[in-house]
Design a protein around this nucleic acid. Structure first.
Lengths: 343, 343
DNA sequence: CTGTTAGCGCTTTCAG
DNA sequence: CTGAAAGCGCTAACAG
């Protein structure tokens, strides 16, 4: 196990000062080309690697960005993380990643760890049950930027990046209505979270605009898993008369529900037209393919990371971009396409 | 922006030494219960947070584990990462995560960043085109453990965690043969990677044991994406006579291929029986559901992280667990189940 | 353009 | 059980 080389070792060998080595290594303007080159060369030869702790300790910044997400293993989040990683890595920052597993408790403990590790900034998509901002307060106090994405939290100091869930849900519900649906069930998630409450509100608004009375007994709130979708199918089948439309707040749940409905002999879209949200890979595999809302996680991750990096580098004012709304698009597939002549 | 509190501030307030505060904060045995309690209390009141840089600098260890994977946004990898995160987080370590995007070049640059950031250990699943160990050599020199998982690299000092791809592929091919398949196509990935070469070898072995002559023109090597699967379907359809079995090295590609085959009127499983690998979520959504090999990424991630943590904590000898082979299981679904009376 | 110096905040001997 | 003191490796004034 070789001894670690420090700038002092390099300095000694070259008969110059450690300060010059430090400067030479980071391309400081006031070091002669020649010595700079020499320094880099010998550093390389000696197998030097900079000690980021010492540097961070001195500079009081870590070059690390922390990320807290509900879960790592969702298709959407993985996409987001890939986008974040790309941007962060290209800017010579590092990524601390942790998952809250959908509980505020773990989210808070993760935030604390991030704080202790002196992350330069924090990117967060909040857990299912997060109701308080307390665990982020220490960041604000210390002027460490906190940016929310997708599942956002309202706070004056924290920019948010998301899509227009309200409009997307409005459009998709409207589409179902235009296809002739008159009794549309909505399966949604925890209404604490913007993404789910806005999708619900968009659904309601579309009904209203089309003069369809909102009926709360057509709304099912669950955790949007595939299993929950199958269960919801049971409830739907008990409704009398049967609904003719279904808007689910995510594709995973929509697919689970469709499979269960199909098993019971329901024809999609003729008996019930179905739409989901997210454009999950399964949406194109299920039969019939699922109408959904496409919004790219990769893009959202990149946008969030870029905003963070720009702030960190240029100290660009975060307030200016308080809300960044990304584009989403309605993708119409067969699961909601009815032959209107049959109506 | 408040000033950061240090142990000196606490010490001053309590009229004790910083050394005692340091000890008290980490539950050192030789500090009286009373002062310990007092220290923790005032630290809390003053809003103290430990500076991990200073601590790391002094202790020469970071409490950070690095992870390099080909991509973050694959269902399997996301699962693995979730498993790793859980174990690492529970042990008060932090996670640096980066992706090689399937190139050795980026893998090497990521490894270097990990090295500079003094990770205590490195978990790696190698890129598509990794042929050299050079970028990991500095870790070995410094006695920093490197553990490979899933896509492993052979090196005396590096434990490996994987499943028995050879046997799984053998079993699945054997199953196809038992279903009456006589002409079985194999779609595989880069043969540089153990996971794909072993699946290929298992396939060959099963043919051999069943006295079916291996035919290289039935082997298609691609990048195992869904699109590649669709393309492969084109090649398959040109074969004359048509094959009656298909074993694909992952589900994503298998599903893409199935969709294309179905579009051309091929009946699965009666015309061609199909099997995949991974038990991807889409495997149960495609129709007919896909026969595949199940192996849980979460479990693999946990196993890899546990091995790492155990080594780091107990300095348990890594050599002892050079190869950790996890369980996988064949899941037979309709895509490969033939009505034998028809044969 | 280069050197001197001090200090970031913590841990850990060693001494009491 | 507690304190004094040194030092981890680097950077940034400041001074030449």
């Amino acid at each position: 196990m070789q001894k670690e080389i420090t700038i002092y070792d390099i300095a000694a060998k070259l008969n110059i000062s450690a300060a010059t080595v430090s400067r030479g290594l980071k391309d400081h303007p006031r070091v002669s080309k020649a010595t700079k080159k020499l320094i880099v060369k010998t550093a390389d030869e000696m197998g030097y690697r900079s000690n980021s702790f010492a540097s961070n300790l001195r500079k009081k910044q870590s070059n690390v960005i922390g990320v807290i997400v509900p879960r790592l293993n969702s298709n959407f989040m993985a996409d987001v993380l890939a986008g974040i990683e790309k941007v962060v890595n290209n800017n010579n920052y590092n990524l601390f990643i942790s998952q809250s597993l959908e509980t505020m408790k773990k989210e808070a403990s993760n935030a604390k760890a991030m704080l202790n590790n002196r992350v330069d900034g924090l990117l967060v998509s909040v857990a299912y049950d997060t109701t308080s901002f307390d665990h982020f307060e220490p960041f604000i106090k210390r002027n460490i930027p906190v940016i929310f994405f997708d599942r956002v939290f309202d706070h004056a100091m924290c920019p948010q990046i998301y899509i227009d869930n309200y409009k997307a849900a409005f459009d998709i519900t409207n589409h179902l209505i235009k296809q002739g649906c008159k009794k549309i069930v909505h399966i949604g998630g925890n209404q604490l979270r913007n993404v789910y409450s806005e999708r619900f509100q968009g659904y309601k608004k579309a009904l209203e605009e089309n003069h369809i009375e909102f009926d709360n007994s057509l709304v099912i709130i669950n955790d949007l898993t595939s299993e929950a979708g199958a269960e919801a199918a049971g409830e739907i089948l008990k409704m009398d008369p049967l609904p003719d439309g279904l808007f689910v707040a995510n594709d995973i749940c929509a697919v689970g529900c469709m499979q269960a409905l199909k098993k019971e002999g329901i024809n999609i879209p003729d008996d019930i037209a179905v739409a989901g949200f997210n454009n999950d890979p399964t949406a194109t595999v299920i039969e019939p393919p699922l109408t959904t809302v496409n919004y790219k996680g990769h893009e959202m991750g990149e946008a969030a990371a870029k905003l963070m990096i720009n702030y960190l580098l240029d100290k660009q004012d975060l307030q200016q971009t308080h809300g960044l709304i990304l584009r989403s698009e309605l993708i119409i597939r067969e699961s909601s396409l009815r032959d209107k002549s049959k109506q």
